[in-house]
Design a protein around this nucleic acid. Sequence first.
RNA 1: GGCCCUAUCGUCUAACGGUUAGGACGGAGCCUUCUCAAGGCUUAAAUCAGAGUUCGAUUCUCUGUAGGGUCACCA
Length: 440
Amino acid sequence: MNSENKKVITRFAPSPTGKFHVGGVRTALYNYLYARKNNGTFILRSEDTDPARSKKEYEDYFLELFTWLGLEYDAFYRQSERTEIYKKYLEQLLVEDKAYVSKETPKEEGERAEVIRFRNPNGKVSFEDAVLGRIEFDTTELGDFVIARSLESPLYHFTVVVDDFLMGVTHIIRGQEHVSNTPRQLLIQEALGAPRPIYAHASIILNEERAKLSKRDPIVRPALEYRDEGYLPGGLMNFMALLGWNPGTEQEIFTLAELVQAFSLERLQKPGAIFNPEKLEWINKEHIRQLSAPQKFSIIRDYLSEDLRNLPDYNEDRLQKLVPTLIDHITNFGMIREMVANGDLAYYFSTPKYTKEMLKTQEFLPALINIIEGLNENNFTAPIIKEAVWAFATEKGRGNVLWPMRFALSGKEKSPDPFTLAEVLGKDETIKRLNYAKDL
RNA sequence: GGCCCUAUCGUCUAACGGUUAGGACGGAGCCUUCUCAAGGCUUAAAUCAGAGUUCGAUUCUCUGUAGGGUCACCA
């Protein structure tokens, strides 16, 4: 229909009127992916034309979010700094009588006695949506809608159209809640003589009640909270990408770069998609696993508490050995914090306290200690320890040997297996704790 | 209510008009196992309803039903 051969330019245009919610991450991502996929340009634009609701801190919020996500934009605009530009086009429409100054009776506080209304030609408009197909509207019901409070105070529908026009935006990818806004914007475009971009209205993201995500939903917290809870940006984006889009293959785990390669407008879904937190957990876990060992280590260390670090036996060699075990137990790094709070980590760095009854039996501890004494401390790994202890444990009843061993090392009803514990603790510490248990 | 959109397992989804309707998450079971996880294997689970078109409808058309979005001097 148009812009087919032009360089692709997409934009994401949040309004700094609140903390950016996760739902928006998907729209931002799709615009980013499509631009990158086509070697195009991705623009970030702050739609801060409402002085009453826009706040700098909210702009900072989504800027910080973009940094965390690693979504690089090629240009950044602030609509509040473009008043003169809008004014010029407003005047043009006024001169051409495509808009007019209208006398009003203010109904609410802050309303003006005079606004600028668009002269609606009252016809039918239709457009070809990349995901929804042909959509037709009768614009009569829209009336002569307001496009500006005054020459210096333009409203959303107007600024969006002017900016998309001036910035050369070729593809508008946004949520389906915007389809009913499209006719107004089409009308303004025509009045301005602006080319029509391609629209792609992605499915709505729903909560468990099948309603659009709103601020009150516990899962749609401000996007940065996902960072604070220990989700990886790649994991979050991977999950969001799959809400309303699929690659057409059975691949489910993607890096950002892979998403860029796989993305296409054609595979955007029509039906609304429910935000499913369990799948996020799984996807995030897969991303955690793909981290390098040093990355895992340093992130885990960041989630440790001061108290834990101050434990008498705290040392990072031991933490290093603990990493694979910890990674196995988490789907996000916030769970490390929980483990610390629940006391599931303290025993690695301080001698556990427990009573002799909890060991169930001390009978086989001396023999067990003997076996472990015989192992080489430089090759003290879980498989080797298991191999050394297994036959003995089987002979005496595994629960009679393994439970006291594990308990002596952890002081916990639940913990990783005793061999893993022993490896992390090292030979000396293991024997020390076993002796303590034996003599209790 | 007007206008607009949508309809495949509980969820995310796949399927040139011809498939035993596939995969994943979650669930269940089994294996492993001193505990808790992880892991491996297995398994249950869906085409909203009714007409029509067609040799043949998940797929196309219509109607119904259900759900959702949107109706600002917000964006």
